[in-house]
Design a protein around this nucleic acid. Sequence first.
DNA 1: ATGCGGACCTGTTAGC
DNA 2: TGCTAACAGGTCCGCA
Length: 271
Amino acid sequence: MPELPEVETTRRGIESHILKLRVHKVLVREPQLRWKIPASLSRQLPGQTIESIKRRGKYLLLSTASNCLIIHLGMSGSLRIVADNAVALKHDHVDILFENNKILRYRDPRKFGAMFWTNDQPLQHPRLIDLGIEPFDKHFNGRYLHQAANNKQQAVKTFIMDSKQLVGVGNIYANEALFLAGIHPVRAAGRISLERYTLLANAIRKVLRNAIKSGGTSLKDFTQTDGQPGYFAVKLNVYDKQGMPCPTCGNTIKQIKQAQRSSYYCSVCQT
DNA sequence: ATGCGGACCTGTTAGC
DNA sequence: TGCTAACAGGTCCGCA
């Protein structure tokens, strides 16, 4: 489900409700997500206070004075703030109950998400330590991409979706950014000029920034933490638009598969 | 080293 | 109407 904008929208949504609050209880109904949620979470988090809520790529980092709960939403995960008498539905796998009787509720039908319970160095966690640059880092630009692409034969679309290169760009925004930059998704990453990578870096930041501003993309089931849908979907140019006219030139949007993922592009505007 | 296909799991939808 | 197959926002792992 969530790419960087949806995770950031979630981060902001829960931050306003649980920052500086003490955890009263943790209820794990289904521990088996992508990896098993450690039992130590339920023992150790109660009594601790959430001191900060940060994001690294698509991971959320809920830090206490001595530990960090790392959450990844996978494809279908979501976090909501609900009242303590709200009935848990199927797929509501984890509740974190706070001292003010609000619950942070994790829901994930496909169970591709994950929760890790670590010390105070979450960025050293094996799943995070090799993550690439943040798209809003001041060092991220066309030169960075151009150098990272080196002589790669890999298609530029799978290249920008590789979290070891840069984080946060999933299938929707990869397609949208390539459209904005006028770059064909199949083009080899190592055969793109610095000038075009500068366009692409700017396009990536633009689509992510706009999506965050709109509260994320609502496709099927993404909602903000208050249950309101994101409003970005109406602004998508190519994603899921196969057969429809290109907003720029009117040519028919094409759909292909790359690395098992759907790619959408205009063969006139993107070369 | 690089890059690809398959895997994880459930729900929804397109197609027959 | 009902069954089946394909597909969905992510990313890890094993193999070529």
